[in-house]
């Protein structure tokens, strides 16, 4: 899932107070699961804004609405359209995709991000999310026992480990596992250590962000 964190309240407040009516719009998919921008969090931010407005003597109305996904046009239904049009501005509590797509669907509406989008990750334990994919466009996880050297190694090196690996942790922070230690341990367990002898070729980064904005096109599913 896409993992995000809420922006500091002051930042959202500075935006919201400029308008008479602000809609806080949540997203019911990834950011609901990572507890950053779902219905509950929309309620919290909306109530925080109301309380802060009361404290500061500012006068604006805060409305709340959450849709299943902000990255798909079909979920912007009539009720959503009505609520968006009734507002002067929208604070989107979706990831960066949802914020932009909301603005694309409603080109006349000011849309402000309520979250800072962090990474593609997983919920490793209750309340902890960790990065697992960098969206490099050409998955290599299969060569490394299911551990991604691109997203989990600080240097994204394909032929590791580097000299910064110490007691299974990375030199950047003792709380960060050395991905190459994880890869080695995993391949050892799988009896495939010999496969690590293979020199990995230089990665083609043009399939990643380095190649510019990416699109996926499939003629078989196009209408």
């Amino acid at each position: 899932m896409i993992v995000a964190e809420q922006k500091p309240l002051d930042e959202v407040y500075e935006f919201a107070k400029k308008y008479k009516k602000v809609l806080i719009m949540g997203c019911g998919t990834c950011v609901t699961v990572c507890m950053a921008g779902g219905e509950k969090e929309v309620g919290i931010v909306a109530n925080q804004l109301r309380l802060k407005a009361k404290e500061n003597g500012d006068d604006f109305v805060v409305d709340e609405h959450t849709i299943t996904r902000q990255c798909d046009k079909e979920f912007f239904d009539e009720e959503t359209a009505r609520k968006i049009k009734a507002a002067d501005a929208v604070v989107s509590m979706a990831c960066g995709v949802g914020v932009q797509y909301s603005a694309e669907v409603f080109p006349d509406m000011l849309v402000y991000p309520g979250l800072n989008t962090k990474f593609f990750g997983t919920n490793v334990e209750q309340g902890v999310w960790a990065e697992r994919c960098a969206g490099c466009g050409e998955c290599v996880v299969g060569d490394f026992g299911g551990v991604c050297p691109i997203s989990r190694c600080s240097k994204s090196i394909m032929n590791g480990p580097c000299g910064g690996s110490s007691d299974g942790t990375c030199e950047i922070n003792p709380d960060v596992d050395c991905a190459w230690q994880l890869i080695y341990d995993r391949m050892d367990k799988l009896g495939k250590l010999d496969e690590l002898e293979k020199n990995q070729p230089i990665k083609d980064w043009s399939t990643a962000r380095d190649g510019g904005p990416r699109t996926v096109k499939r003629d078989d599913v196009k209408l």
């Binding site: 500091p8 309240l9 002051d10 919290i44 925080q48 309380l51 802060k52 404290e55 500061n56």
Partner: peptide, 8 residues
Amino acid sequence: DLLAETGI
């Protein structure tokens, strides 16, 4: 913490 952010 949420209250403190709002100034309460």
